[in-house]
Nucleic acid binder design. Structure first.
Lengths: 244, 244
DNA sequence: ACTTATTAACTTGTCATACAAGTTGATAAC
DNA sequence: GTTATCAACTTGTATGACAAGTTAATAAGT
C-alpha cells in the first residue's frame, strides 16, 4: 500500500506516514498472506504493542481501521476475530459516505437511481442468458414471498423481499460483485422510501412487473428482460425521494 | 444512523454503542446539515472534548473515522478541514478492501474484469446517445495524448491516459457515479497490469480500438459502441493478472 | 513602509498509566 | 455432571505528559 490516505490512485498527495499507518500495513499483510485467517482470533493489543514496539494508540487506531473496513470484528472484553473478506465487505465500506452523500443531495439520489437502472438492466441481461430452472424457481418463490408480505401488510419485510428478489437476479450471474452492488444500491435507496408506512396502491404493479421479468428471463430473452426491468425501475423511481 | 457498524442494512446485528460512535454521529449530522461546510476548519479536539464531555480518545477515534472515510483532512499541527463530498469520496472508501480482496484472489480479479465490461458497456451506450461535439473532441484529444505517451515510452503515463479516456466517456453521461466507478475499477485493475514495464506490442491495437469507439459514439450508434467497447475490454483483460 | 525571521501559542501525534466494563475459562459448589 | 462463582484477561475510556508540526503575531532588517 502507499501512505496514510490509502487511495489506490497513485497520483495523490503524499502525507506523513503515521505510526498507525505502518501498523495497519503490517496487519493488512498478515491478513492478505493468510497468517491471520478468517474466523481466527487476532493477537491482543498488548501483544501487538510489544511486537511492533509502539504504544497502544497506534495499535488501537490500526485495529479500528480494520474494524471500520469490516475486516475484523471487535467486542469489548474479547479478542478481535478476522472476518471473511467478500465483495459485500468492500461495497459496505461505502455505506457511511453514501448515506451522507444521498441525504443532503437530491441530485445524487437521482444519479443513483439512474445508475441502478443501468446496472440492473445489465444484470438482468446476463441473467436471461444464464438462468437455469433452479434460478427461475428461486425467483418465483421470492415473488411469492413478497406477495405474502404485502398481504400481511408488513411494509419493512415487503422492502426486504424486494431487495432479495433483485439480489437473486444478480446471483444468477455468479458474480458476487453484482450481488453486493445490487443489494447495496437498493439498501441506500430504501432509506428514502417515502411510502413505507402508507401503501401507495402500486404494490400490485410491482409484483406484476417482477413476474414479467421472471418470464422474460425464463424465455431467454435478454433484450425484453432488460426493457421490462428498466421500465419497472423508472416507474418505481418516484418511490424513493427526499420529499415526503 | 444506526450503531457502531454503520452498515445501512438494517438487518445487521446490534452492537454496544461506543462513545466514539455517538461522537461520530453528532459530527456527521453537522457535516450533513451544513454546520461544518466543505473547506472550513473543524473545531479542535480539545473543543470537541469539552463540548461533548468525553475524553480525547473518543473524539480522536471519531475524527479518524471521518478521515478514513475521506470526509475530512487532518494534518499534524493544524486543524482538520472538511472536504467536499463527492461520488469519488464514496467509491474511494472501497479502495482498502478492494485491494485486499483482489490481491489474494484470482477469482475476484476475474469478477471485476467481467463487471467492468458490463459497466463500461452500459456507459458507452449512454455516451453514444448523449455525446455532443465537445465531448467527441475531448475524447479524440485524449487518444492523441495516449498515443504521445506511447511514443515517448512513458508506461505509467500511458496507463493514466487510458484511465482518463474511459473516465471521459463516463463523464459524457453527466453522472458522477459512473465517473467515480469507472476510474476506480481501472485503478484497481491497473495494480495488476503485468506489462507495465515491457510493452506488449498490442498498444497500437488499444489505440485503434479507442478510436473506433469514438467513431461509434460520434455516429450515435450505441449498440456498435457497446460491442466494440466490450470486445476491446475482453481483449485487454489478459493484461491484468496475478501471473507475471 | 514592506519584507523576512523569529518566536510563542496552539494543535495533532504518541506514550504511559489507570480504571471501568465485558468476556472467558477454570475452579468450587451443588 | 451441571451450575455458580470467581480470577485473569481484554477492550473501552479518561487523564496527563511530551514530541512534532502549524499558524499567526511580533520583531528585525532592509
Amino acid at each position: 500500500m502507499d501512505n496514510s490516505t490509502h487511495h489506490a490512485d497513485g497520483r495523490g498527495k503524499i502525507t506523513r506516514q503515521r505510526l498507525s499507518d505502518q501498523v495497519l500495513e503490517r496487519l493488512q499483510e498478515r491478513i492478505a498472506s493468510g497468517v491471520f485467517r478468517p474466523g481466527s482470533k487476532m493477537p491482543s493489543e498488548r501483544e501487538l504493542m510489544d511486537e511492533f514496539g509502539v504504544g497502544r494508540p497506534a495499535v488501537r487506531e490500526a485495529m479500528q481501521r480494520l474494524h471500520d473496513a469490516g475486516l475484523i470484528s471487535v467486542a469489548q472484553g474479547g479478542r478481535a476475530r478476522v472476518n471473511e473478506i467478500e465483495a459485500t465487505t468492500a461495497v459496505r465500506s461505502m455505506d457511511f459516505v453514501a448515506q451522507l452523500l444521498l441525504s443532503d443531495s437530491a441530485e445524487y439520489l437521482e444519479h443513483l437511481k439512474k445508475a441502478r437502472i443501468m446496472f440492473e438492466g445489465g444484470m438482468v441481461d446476463i441473467a436471461a442468458r444464464q438462468a437455469n430452472t433452479d434460478d427461475i424457481m428461486a425467483l418465483r418463490k421470492l415473488v411469492e414471498i413478497q406477495r405474502a408480505k404485502l398481504a400481511e401488510g408488513r411494509a419493512q419485510d415487503y422492502i426486504y423481499a424486494d431487495i432479495d428478489f433483485h439480489r437473486q437476479i444478480a446471483e444468477i450471474s455468479g458474480n458476487p460483485i453484482y450481488v453486493a452492488l445490487s443489494e447495496a444500491m437498493l439498501n441506500w435507496l430504501s432509506t428514502f422510501h417515502v411510502h413505507l408506512l402508507r401503501w401507495t396502491g402500486n404494490e400490485d404493479a410491482t409484483l406484476r412487473e417482477h413476474l414479467e421479468i421472471v418470464d422474460a428471463i425464463e424465455a431467454g430473452a435478454p433484450e425484453d428482460a432488460k426493457k421490462i426491468m428498466q421500465a419497472h425501475l423508472e416507474r418505481s423511481a418516484s418511490l424513493y425521494s427526499h420529499s415526503v
